[in-house]
Amino acid sequence: MAMDKLYEFLTGPALWITVIIFVGGLAIRLAWLFGLSQERDKPWHDFKSAVWAWRSIIHWVLPWASVSSRNQPVFTGAVWVFHICWIGVPLFLGAHNMLFDEAWGWSLPSLPDAVADWASLAVIACGVFFLVRRLSRPEVRILTSAWDYTLVLLALAPFVTGWLAFNQYGPYGLMLNLHIFLSEVLLIVLPFSKLAHMVLFFASRSAIGYEFGTRRGARVW
């Protein structure tokens, strides 16, 4: 019973709060940075160019499209798989879309469950690889703080708990609530942490695209 009540809370008011903080947080951060840029980042605005923003972004969205990403091909592959699955699974999971449909009478196409299952495992596997890499490469370890490890674990937590719940390993009710709770924590933390690179990646890459491309005619990938 307690689990049901918790579930109701987590998918009710807590979800609303989460969505508001997640969307609002990102929107406010973006708007605030944009405002600040007009005052203090003149080159950004003087050299704006959709072409250079696009070139700067696409060479880092596609795997192995930049020299740097080719220097560490395995890591790049893992990063790519991780991000695609990290975004794709929650959006296109059948179970999530049933909830979307229930709530709004509208849903996204659903991935076959088996694919989503493997994709979740891929996220976890890549995440473990990142942690191992972080610990084993001196130049990465020296940069890593406790908060960095926490963020990786937090980014993985919904996938671990979701996968366990989906496959009914462990106590289902607890696992499901844990999954929802940790996902909400993740979404609340995201706009205010470096995970905000979810949107700031595009801003930052555009800025450097203008700086090198429009301003200097030089590539930056």
């Binding site: 940075l33 944009f34 600040l36 203090r40 980042d41 950004w44």
Partner: peptide
């Protein structure tokens, strides 16, 4: 500025 703030905050220590 906006760039400095982004740079300082989003470096993922890769």
């Amino acid at each position: 500025g906006a760039r400095m703030r982004m740079w300082l905050s989003i470096c993922s220590r890769c």
